[in-house]
Design a protein around this nucleic acid. Structure first.
Lengths: 157, 157
DNA sequence: GATATATTGATAACCATTATCATTTGACGG
DNA sequence: CCGTCAAATGATAATGGTTATCAATATATC
């Protein structure tokens, strides 16, 4: 049974999750739906703990463990993509109907710019070929100082 | 005072460390030299804990905290480079007189191939320029299946 | 509805890493 | 060489993010 929906456009993501649960003896629950909806409402990279904070505001009865479990579930279902940040924390972003992209990260303010560069993708394919590897995915982060921080900070604080 | 050297070719790295310590009121110590030598003797990516295991075999009196502290020191001194692996653990590799490179990682056996691709570097520079960022570094990992595992595993276990 | 089973929330456990702190050690000046 | 003093050490406790445990609860199916 699927619970009331808050966000109309979450319908497809919800059905993706339901489909994933089907046939695995997994169940659709209110906490899972709430976590999904809150996650979909955040257009940024969040850690499980940040997501937990947001979920709590909607339903304080939902526990931290459930958020951690559910966000992993979302990743398995293809609704979220995760990456380990350089500080060791794992962050999640939307994955459903979101094209692949890489990240440009400001080392001063933490701002994240998403970009796609065909040139890079092509060159990566060449590397795979050259070494006889079968590609399964990649992670690319460019670190630097964003325009705003360059103006503010001068050479660097 | 610098202690007996075991590896003749560690001389330059040692002097880099000594130079770094100089003028910062930091001291050269036997544990630091031992950690450096053991680290230099390992031609692979190691976590601080793996390095600790190796150091212990040489000098069991050296504590874990010292290895963690020293490997960070080596990174600051430019002798090591670290990256957060996808499983969240931080791994270190040699950095002195080692050209920048990226990694091709086998998701089945964990094998790591280092590569350099001028094309990718060029394209990255273009991304920085396009967004007005000042580059400070990047991390690129290509995940895939190595030739050996492709032969063995077929489509995938 | 009743039933079987997955899920939940609270809590404890976990792991890699860092902080604390009394003791030891190295660098420097005599 | 020896004394002095700050830095470094090792043992341990603490931390932060994440996962496991487990009795109570909620869900899908009949």
């Amino acid at each position: 049974m699927i619970f009331n929906m808050k966000r109309a456009d979450a319908a497809t993501e919800l059905s993706v999750l339901v489909d994933y649960l089907q046939g695995r003896d997994l169940k659709m629950t209110r906490p899972r739906q709430t976590v999904l909806e809150v996650f979909l409402g955040i257009e940024a990279h969040v850690t499980a703990e940040e997501l937990y904070d947001a979920v709590r505001k909607v339903d304080p009865s939902i526990g931290q463990a459930t958020v951690f479990r559910t966000v992993r579930l979302l990743e398995e279902a293809g609704l979220a993509r995760s990456a380990c940040r350089d500080d060791g924390a794992r962050s999640y972003e939307h994955a459903y109907r979101h094209k692949h992209h890489d990240h440009l990260v400001c080392v001063d303010c933490g701002a994240i710019v998403e970009f796609r560069e065909a040139e890079i993708e092509r060159a990566q394919a060449a590397v795979y070929r050259k070494h006889g590897f079968e590609a399964t995915g990649h992670s690319l982060e460019l670190f630097g100082r964003c325009p705003a921080c360059r103006r503010k900070g001068g050479t660097r604080a």
